[in-house]
């Protein structure tokens, strides 16, 4: 096995297992329990846990600190980093900080615009974009150099990936855009939440046409719906989200108290269907403030127990 990093995710993927990742949103406060409790719920059912970076531009505990809390309890964390809030000095510095705690996974994102969050009047940085952040991490890791050209003593040992949204517009550049991310050094991809399975499979077909599935591990993003209301909200309010009407009517078709279970069922069925799609290397289960359901989803999808690597 040709491993480039000490990442557990890389080992799982390169051993040919279907990887399972999940995510935790850090708290809007400084209590570490908010992270560690969530970690405990999913610890044994996933390989790696993403920690979001001030998602929806709401100020929260920093991703790096939350990653360290998980690491200390034996969970392999994935540092999410957005280019919205840091310039290239801060980004490189935080990458080194993460590497110093042996955090071996990182996801490069641009981040939601600050107008969605609690600091709408703040500046955004966007010194570099998410693709250039991928290049930066790979440059630091593979060449052992800073962007400025100087050598790094003990370069970061980080498996690096990016997000992809198969449903955003314009659809015609969705696959070329993935190709660009791969060209920039993405080693894995975690996708936007998938509800429109047909469209996702069409995207995967085009991904395979270009052979991209052989160059990058694609983890399909899954978010169970708690209610028909949430389904409608995701369809209408969340940018770049594609929720087909049949999903909404299926959720709405059962009594309110049955809807959470229906949401889990839809999620499990989707994973079972997408497991068979060539090029899908794993699943990224984002159970937003519903982490306790991750074990059930993983078990029912036939992804438990997790491999020991």
């Amino acid at each position: 096995m040709n491993l480039k990093t000490s990442s557990k995710l890389e080992k799982v993927l390169k051993s040919g297992h279907i990887a399972v990742t999940s995510e935790c949103g850090p708290p809007r406060g400084s209590d570490p329990k908010a992270v560690t409790e969530k970690g405990k719920l999913i610890k044994d059912h996933v390989d790696v846990v993403n920690i979001t970076d001030n998602q929806t531009a709401m100020t929260r505990m920093c991703s790096l600190a939350a990653c360290i809390h998980l690491k200390q309890m034996g969970i392999e964390p994935m540092l999410q980093m957005v280019t919205r809030d840091r310039n290239r000095i801060a980004l490189q510095s935080d990458i080194l900080g993460a590497a110093s705690f042996d955090i071996h996974n990182m996801l490069c994102l641009s981040g939601d615009h600050q107008s969605f969050g609690d600091c709408a009047q703040g500046q955004n940085v966007h010194d570099i974009d998410s693709m250039q952040l991928l290049q930066t991490v790979r440059h630091m890791r593979d060449n052992g150099k800073f962007l400025g050209g100087d050598d790094i003593k003990r370069p970061p040992d980080i498996f690096v990936g990016a997000a992809a949204n198969p449903f955003a517009d314009p659809f015609e550049v969705r696959v070329p855009r993935l190709a660009k991310k791969v060209a920039c050094g993405a080693e894995f991809i975690q996708t936007q939440c998938i509800y429109n399975l047909d469209k996702f499979e069409e995207w995967m077909r085009r991904v395979r046409e270009r052979g991209l599935h052989e160059k990058v591990f694609i983890l399909a993003g899954m978010t169970p719906m708690k209610s028909a209301g949430m389904a409608r909200y995701m369809k209408n309010r969340v940018p770049g989200m594609d929720v087909p009407d049949e999903v909404i009517s299926r959720m709405a078709g059962v009594p309110k108290e049955r809807q959470p279970q229906e949401g889990i069922d839809i999620c499990v069925e989707a994973i079972q269907r997408l497991k068979e799609v060539e090029g899908v290397a794993g699943f990224h289960i984002m159970a937003i403030e519903w982490e306790e359901k991750v074990p059930e989803i993983v078990e029912r999808s036939g992804l438990y127990p997790r491999p020991q690597v």
């Binding site: 641009s110 974009d129 998410s130 517009d169 550049v173 660009k180």
Partner: peptide, 20 residues
């Protein structure tokens, strides 16, 4: 571009319009 993304579009582009 609201995020001055040099390699866009970001995931917030929807029906030709910006997420903001």
């Amino acid at each position: 571009c609201a995020k001055r993304v040099m390699n866009g579009p970001c995931g917030g582009s929807s029906a030709g319009k910006c997420e903001i």
